[in-house]
Nucleic acid binder design. Structure first.
Lengths: 312, 312
DNA sequence: GCCGGCCACAACGATCGGTTGGGCGTCCTT
DNA sequence: AAGGACGCCCAACCGATCGTTGTGGCCGGC
């Protein structure tokens, strides 16, 4: 189906004449006639009844019209999503299931008029995101550079939210039936966080965490994907992992995995947004405010050294 | 833009390989390559990065993907809306601003998953609707045949709701400042209801109404459209009209028209739905129930002779 | 260093989408 | 009732497009 034909159909339905639509589009009436005929042939349905003074929608045409409008609107949105000059707000997240993306989705659902595109740069290195922002490929990125001096002067990094961590364990794990846990209870249990790149933001976070609470955090081993990790957890009696409270993890219900909040102190992972210092996309303000309006941490929460905590 | 290309893009993005997508679609890899290239040329943006083991979405490609899915879904819905065998529930209303359509829209908003197409047969004669239902062109019609014997045996007519009438007047009309009105207060005022076809359901209604309350209901004159009617009302100091409480009338706010409920007794216009007696569309049941669940009339309401009133 | 897998480019035929030209039916005017 | 205006369709033609087959380049694995 040619979307030009669909657009032509909508226009012809609105003006009620092929001739008028043809003038509007700067083509001949015969071209309109053929476009509609092609559409009718494809749908195997008559869309217009031809009269001496123009055309009129058939029942099928009436039923088709709103869907046609929706297609045209969809094409319109799709084009503006990639047109460099009229690009929608485009934000980089770590992954579509990350807490960042989940909260961003919540924001969009409460502000559905926002033209928002969520993308993910498949690179652990925050410099990739920094370069993408400076190049104008994305408007902002939910990443953190732990050393503020490493951030170029034309970019800004704002702290937007902290996600409390929860322990994720299978049913055979000794801590499986706990309602909540303190960090000291995690001592001597193996915490497996695969796929952490050395010297990355996450490596640093878990290093600090392990030191602070004398934990066994094992970041070694390749990341075979979240499914493989969940598989392992479900079976294992001694492996657990940490996930953000807002992370979306989908697993078969047969897995019977449990998420157990860590408290006293709460362990939180700070989330920042990197954006241009000058002329940031105007839609970012509301998104930052939305993130910051969400529940904040207790005074006692533990945060890594680089965090600039937001507390009430 | 060709929707086949869009569908191809979505598939290629999902499988990550042109070759695989080509196998899936039963064409050569080169065809896929050209489709994507054409899309990229049209959008003036690179959608994939080509690698040795397949393709990967660019940032722009990621931004484009959800919109592409929405286009594909829109095309899907558009096709099912007209495919005779898989047709969505299709209901005929008197007009898109009628109370019928308004309530139907309310229903759809609370059940957005319903595949519903609203059409209007531009004919005053209910036999047109009857024929359309019998032919399968529509599933049901919000029309009334006042003589039940005139309804073919294979069709059923169910009473679904009554719409109380309100007086619509301009600011200079002597009744303009009333909060409510009784029918007897309308006596001697001219009530203008243009565009009523002789011997139609509406002619009969207003005949009975005029007789019952000794009113001056003027149904003469051609209908120049609702705008012309509103124009006249806004200016006039002695012309008023009756509208259903659920009818949607949009007018410039400068008009300052008022809708005044008629009470003691309420005057109600009964609404029926004509549908096939055997194998009606399964979605109709919920719609009928929805209409019937809405506020019913007081015991004292006036209804035309053919009505089968629904009262608590 | 070779092989295998995947994508791009080139050439060719079929199809498609546009134009011009001509004809028919309806409505309005004279 | 005849003529003109208008809007539609059909036919013929032409350039662009979409598919095919054939070929070459690039990259990763053995």
């Amino acid at each position: 189906m040619d979307t030009e034909a669909v657009r032509t159909f909508v226009l012809a339905a609105e003006v009620g004449q092929f001739q008028h639509a043809a003038d509007e589009l700067g083509v001949t009436q015969q071209a309109i006639s053929k476009r509609i005929a092609a559409l009718e042939r494809e749908l195997e349905v008559r869309l217009f009844t031809r009269t001496a003074r123009g055309v009129e929608l058939t029942i099928d045409g009436q039923a088709f019209l709103p869907h046609a409008r929706s297609i045209v609107a969809g094409v319109e949105r799709a084009i503006t999503a990639v047109r460099p000059d009229s690009r929608a707000l485009r934000i980089d997240v770590l992954g579509f299931r990350s807490g960042q993306a989940v909260v961003l989705h919540d924001y969009w659902r409460s502000h559905p008029e926002t033209a928002l595109d969520v993308v993910t740069l498949k690179a652990a290195d925050p410099h990739v995101a920094v370069a993408a922002i400076r190049a104008g490929d994305v408007d902002a990125s939910f990443r953190t550079v732990t050393d503020p001096a490493a951030l170029p002067r034309d970019l800004d990094m704002v702290h937007v939210i902290d996600f409390p961590l929860e322990l994720l364990v299978g049913p055979r794990h000794p801590l499986a039936s706990a309602r909540t846990l303190t960090p000291s209870q995690l001592r001597r249990h193996r915490i497996w966080v695969p796929g952490i790149a050395p010297k990355s933001e996450w490596a640093d976070f878990y290093d600090q965490l392990a030191t602070a609470f004398d934990l066994r955090v094992d970041g070694a081993g390749p990341n075979f994907g979240v499914e493989a990790l969940l598989d392992t957890l479900a079976e294992s009696a001694d492996v657990a992992t940490l996930v953000g409270s807002r992370d979306r993890l989908v697993w078969p219900t047969s897995y019977d995995l449990r998420r157990i909040p860590v408290v006293n102190p709460t362990i939180a992972y700070p989330q920042s947004l990197i954006l241009p210092r000058s002329n940031p996309h105007p839609g970012l303000r509301a998104i930052i405010d939305y993130f910051r309006s969400l529940a904040t941490l207790p005074e006692t929460a533990w945060l890594p050294s680089w965090a600039t905590p937001r507390r009430r």
